[in-house]
């Protein structure tokens, strides 16, 4: 399989592991994208991810079924986001501060819930070798020998894109995010739409967290998402609020993170200090290049409090 060699790094293996490394951020970022498209800024992604991680792991261990674990994680993430939704949408609180409070809350809650699960090993999610496709030379192992969540995350990107671009609910959601007064005047239920978007965002963050605790690591330890939620937030901005670019952003970030470790392991003579900063610097650099083309696309009502003054 050593066909494509970059220096001493096997590109095929690199691509395969970057898909796994990027999946948690991809899932969470995609959820946050929908939330922000609806005009809501939820900075609590880290808190929802870590709660998803602990609940997914706990349920996964108790049921011996990672799939049930993922479902529970999505539910837990959504429940936590509901708290954020109720406070910001009905009680009109400031979204930035509420989101940060949610992160604090989630970190505390998860470590209390997780106490009995420290040092426990979970059942792992099997690999899904897609029939025929996984036997394609070169591309097969990169693309078609992963666990189901990797495929699901990519499907979710396409689904969110199609939903926002082609469906009527998607259009309404975008309208609510662009200009909530106008949307309200047109008779759309601004608060209801936003609440649904927030729930979706919470569920996706929960899935992303569970991917860390059930697949990527897999174990439960306090604070194990280690800031992935913040990266997910950055990826949404990076993507200029476009679903397909979220995929690019997440894979770019995950890719450089994995690449820098591979370069170190291969003994490439670049100082480690630069290498370990590279994922962040490369992301900034690429965003700068994108922004040279003058595209922004932040939803017009992002972060602003909506009050129906009838």
């Amino acid at each position: 399989m050593q066909i494509m060699i970059f220096g001493q790094i096997d590109l095929i293996l690199l691509l395969a592991s970057l898909m796994v490394a990027s999946t948690p951020i991809l899932l969470a970022a995609l959820g946050e994208l929908v939330v922000e498209k609806a005009g809501v800024l939820n900075l609590g992604v880290e808190g929802m991810m870590i709660t998803g991680a602990v609940v997914g792991f706990a349920v996964g261990v108790n049921t011996q079924s990672p799939a049930v674990g993922f479902l529970a994680a999505a539910l837990a993430g959504a429940l936590l986001s509901l708290l954020f939704g109720l406070i910001t949408q009905y009680l009109k609180s400031n979204q930035v501060a509420t989101g940060l409070a949610l992160t604090l809350f989630g970190l505390g809650l998860s470590s209390l819930l997780g106490k009995p699960y420290e040092g426990v090993k979970a059942a792992t999610l099997g690999k899904m070798h897609l029939p025929f496709l996984s036997d394609i030379p070169v591309l097969g192992p990169i693309l078609f020998r992963h666990d189901p969540m990797v495929y699901l995350s990519i499907l979710a990107v396409v689904a969110v894109w199609a939903f926002l671009t082609y469906t009527r609910p998607g259009l309404i959601l975008r309208a609510v995010g662009e200009n909530h007064e106008a949307a309200h005047a047109l008779g759309y239920k601004v608060v209801r739409v936003r609440l649904l978007a927030i729930l979706f965002g919470g569920a996706m963050a929960g899935l992303g967290g569970a991917y860390v605790s059930l697949v990527r690591v897999p174990q439960w330890t306090e604070g194990m998402t280690a800031g992935a939620g913040w990266i997910a937030l950055a990826i949404v901005v990076f993507a200029s609020w476009r679903p397909l670019r979220v995929l690019i952003g997440a894979y770019l970030f995950g890719g450089v993170s994995v690449l820098q470790l591979n370069l170190q392991a291969a003994g490439v003579a670049i100082p480690v200090e630069y290498l370990s900063s590279s994922p962040y610097l490369v992301t900034i650099l690429v965003l700068v290049i994108i922004s040279l083309r003058g595209q922004h696309g932040a939803p017009g009502s992002l972060g602003r409090i909506f009050h129906a003054s009838s």
């Binding site: 009680l91 009109k92 400031n94 409070a101 989630g106 970190l107 209390l112």
Partner: peptide, 20 residues
């Protein structure tokens, strides 16, 4: 320490919610 974090989160939620 986790209980304290949770408690801080609660306090913030209440403070922000009561702003209404």
């Amino acid at each position: 320490a986790a209980a304290i974090q949770l408690f801080q989160g609660m306090l913030l939620f209440f403070l922000l919610a009561m702003d209404v």
